[in-house]
């Protein structure tokens, strides 16, 4: 099966200059990955490993310094591909002055949902994410969980083929985590491709078909679900033996 997402030696180097001094920081380096259509793919790594950089490259928010990032056969950044992508960020960054309905309607327009079906599509998706009763309140009045639901709605409103989720369960309560898990499994059952980043290993092992572990912006390993399925704690062991801290902090020494 042809890969729907491909990173080919993708490298992102950030250049920061302050008072004439230039500092280079590696986001990701020579990352090569393939994600198949209909697959749930997890990107694991510690903080600063390059997970968010990878996701931003897939969305065209960052441009690769070297190498190539391809989504649905198109080299990113490419606007036409964004119609096929739904993005669920770690924290929902939605304009707090809008109501939930207004926000979803705006994202529907941005995603070129036809005007004939837009109103119904917005109503349906708000119903599906359980926000129809609170849809006309301003987002500034919402709880974190409610904002996350609106974020889900904006990611799904245009029925995308690919869902990109950046730390989708970080900061959520156990019930909300369960709901996100259900959403991912439902998307998989619909034949959608899900690309998610996380450092919550127990959740990743419940939903992912394959995972990649990033360390210091480099690919450390790729593992398939058959390697950890049914063996509790196996993925955690794989992760802890593979991932290495690249920040200049040592490990805790209380043992």
């Amino acid at each position: 099966m042809n890969p729907i997402i491909q990173l080919n030696n993708a490298t992102k180097i950030f250049r920061k200059s302050h008072l004439g001094r230039v500092k280079l920081a590696i986001g990701i380096q020579d990352l090569t990955l393939d994600v198949k259509k209909g697959e749930v793919f997890g990107l694991l790594g510690l903080n600063g490993a390059g997970k968010t950089t990878t996701i931003k490259l897939l969305l065209g928010l960052l441009f690769p310094t070297r190498g190539q990032v391809t989504v649905a056969g198109q080299t990113m950044p490419d606007l036409s591909v964004l119609r096929q992508i739904g993005y669920l960020p770690e924290a929902a960054y939605i304009n707090k002055y809008l109501t939930g309905r207004e926000a979803v309607n705006i994202f529907a327009k941005l995603s070129k949902v036809p005007s004939k079906i837009r109103k119904k599509a917005v109503g349906d998706i708000l119903e599906k994410v359980g926000m129809s009763q609170n849809a006309d309140k301003r987002i500034g009045e919402y709880s974190k969980g409610m904002v996350q639901r609106i974020s889900m709605a904006q990611a799904l409103i245009h029925n995308p083929d690919i869902l990109i989720m950046d730390e989708p369960i970080t900061g959520l309560d156990p019930l909300a985590i369960l709901e996100v898990r259900q959403l991912i499994l439902w998307l998989k059952s619909q034949g959608k491709t899900v690309f998610l980043s996380s450092h919550n290993i127990s959740e990743v092992e419940k939903v992912c078909d394959r995972i990649a572990i990033l360390t210091g912006g480099r690919l450390a390993m790729i593992s398939e679900s058959r390697e950890w399925a049914g063996a509790e704690g196996k993925l955690e062991k794989i992760f802890t033996t593979t991932a290495q801290r690249t920040e200049s902090i040592g490990s805790l020494k209380f043992s």
């Binding site: 969305l59 928010l61 036409s80 964004l82 119609r83 993005y87 960020p89 960054y93 904006q154």
Partner: peptide, 14 residues
Amino acid sequence: ETRSIYLVLSHPIE
């Protein structure tokens, strides 16, 4: 700063 631009630009808008 609020990162709301991420969501807008992750949609197909020039």
